[in-house]
Design a protein around this nucleic acid. Structure first.
Lengths: 340, 340
DNA sequence: TTGTATGCGTTATCAT
DNA sequence: ATGATAACGCATACAA
């Protein structure tokens, strides 16, 4: 009555279970003719493998490792917390999740961490790190060994990863520009762009997206040169003070990357009505949204992010296709009113 | 080695597999003392049940029924399509999904459809329909029979459903108001609210949310009395024409419910720069976003919606807790730039 | 090249 | 009240 099983295939094709299994798992040692017969039977009765039973018999364990940046970041902390939750969610699916915080800003240290990995006792790897030649080489080795790799938040070249789990930062920048342009309206002062490092790829892409939409749809809106704070609060205060001294009419601020705490602190020294947009929903940005220091946050659902990474790795392990719509990470616009 | 199993529990507690199973599944016929010993063993060795193996042995089948509104609606069509996809996604998890389109606007027909259901050959039910006493009674019968029920998109009284899968429409209305107020800026004309039926609960809640935020944060913004089109395109044209005749300075339009096609058509007769906000991302609103007839869409991810409903029903069936963060449906703001 | 037999972790039927 | 044992659907070591 239930779904057809391997037994049904065996009976229909007139072979034994073992032969069915060999065909199902593309193992050698079966005559082409027999293979054809079995495959015909599979199609005929509409067999779909019971992955649960297969994993049970195989005693499969998906051991996944997540490489996350070390250092002080609420955003990364949030992802780590989401991973803790995902661990509980997926425990019934034989998924084990290990998290390792590595100094991703140091390409050599990151590469060393990857080099120390034995692809044999790992089923999949997720990496959140900036691009670097060192990472590229180290990851390529693991992938050659057959290890599925996904890039998390920051994309990597195709040689490094099987899949990217994150948002299109160019589109995110365009979204920020649309919001900024519409919130500011006509005849306003200039917009200030702030980032921790101008060389960070994500920042670059967002800035590029922001600029292109501004040029196309808000040509009258002036954009000041991007400021770099290098994750240094003192420096942040200095550059913001300098910027406001030069242009007291600054009407909007767009924070391209992390370090929003320092930025908001520095901005508090210059009271006035302004539109401020930042990225990533964290306890800090949530609070700023609630009390009006921030007008909008562009973010991605990090819970979804990590669950997607896990599902993608699992699918790769099983040789299954992923469900594109489920794994598409959305660019979310959060105002005070739709705060989750 | 691997995770602890029922055998480990049995050995540790000094009982047989059958007894362990009785305790695990809260079946009667075990001395309180023995129960305690087994439960202690479970905690001691940190046992977590292998759901896959359990479902295998149990030959479990989750037969879920989704009751969706009939009639012509791209939004509902989208949900039906998402259900088709979900069917494929969950086929490995022993989930079977049936969809039935019913005339939900007719409470008696809806109640009749529910009355025709045999709770015995169903594992869970999802209902998308407006509230009505008839639905309340019919659903109560099913729930008394132990059938898990979730409300989809439109919430229901607590007697009707175990769980609500959808967004907070009051917050959605507030979000629309925030967007409208910010996009319009100061010194603008009035805002027009349009709905298909003013009595629809969702519309009511959105309107309430919109009004309360407007009153609090945009007191200068004038809001015209809500217009009702009753899903009649001709009537839509008439009421829009009348509205614009009375107030040619209308600066914003907020569409509270469906029927956006008729609205956009009617608005096209009155050219001019306006802010238009609507609900639900469909092929229509997507197109309108792309060509500028719509400035923003407030929506919910219907793919997530149906998967969440399925997971919640599944959890109810297994007596498991749901993961709140994963099942929270977000109020999404879609501009042209972050269109998925 | 093909088949037999056993086990994976859980449930359920039958004894005791 | 408790225990032995046979499924469930699949994979695999080993035999033929």
């Amino acid at each position: 009555m239930g779904r057809p099983t391997v037994h049904d295939i065996a009976r229909t094709a007139g072979v034994s279970l073992a032969t069915v299994d060999r065909v199902l798992n593309a193992r050698p040692g079966v005559r082409a003719q027999t293979v054809a017969r079995v495959e015909a039977a599979i199609r005929d009765i509409g067999y779909v493998r019971d992955i649960g039973a297969a994993n049970l018999a195989r005693r499969r364990l998906y051991r996944f490792l997540f490489l996350l940046p070390d250092g002080d970041s609420r955003f990364v902390d949030g992802i780590a917390a989401d991973l803790d939750e995902a661990r509980r969610i997926f425990v019934g699916d034989r998924v084990q999740i290990a998290v390792q915080r590595v100094p991703v800003r140091d390409p050599h240290a990151l590469a060393a961490a990857l080099a120390a990995l034995d692809p044999g006792d790992l089923a999949g790897l997720a990496v959140m790190a900036p691009q670097s030649p060192e990472l590229r080489d180290a990851a390529a080795r693991l992938r050659r060994a057959g290890l599925p790799v996904v890039a998390l938040v920051s994309d990597q070249p195709a040689e490094v990863r099987d899949h990217f789990v994150g948002i299109d930062n160019d589109a995110a920048g365009r979204t920020a520009a649309r919001l900024m342009g519409r919130f500011l309206g006509h005849d306003t002062g200039p917009v200030l762009l702030v980032t921790s490092s101008i060389r960070a790829r994500d920042s670059l892409e967002r800035r590029f997206g922001f600029d292109s939409l501004r040029a196309a749809d808000f040509p009258a809106l002036e954009v000041l040169p991007t400021l770099e704070a290098h994750d240094d609060p003192a420096r942040m205060v200095r550059i913001i003070d300098t910027a406001f001294a030069a242009r007291p009419d600054i009407a909007g601020v767009y924070s391209l990357s992390s370090g929003n705490g320092a930025l908001l602190g520095a901005l508090a020294r210059h009271p006035g009505r302004r539109v401020v947009i930042a990225h990533e929903l964290t306890p800090l940005t949530r609070g700023a949204l609630l009390d009006g220091r921030l007008d909008a946050v562009i973010t991605q659902d990090t819970g979804h992010l990590v669950r997607s990474a896990i599902r993608v790795l699992q699918a790769r392990c099983d040789g299954r296709d992923i469900v594109a719509s489920q794994e598409r990470i959305r660019i979310e616009i959060i105002l005070r009113e739709n705060l989750p």
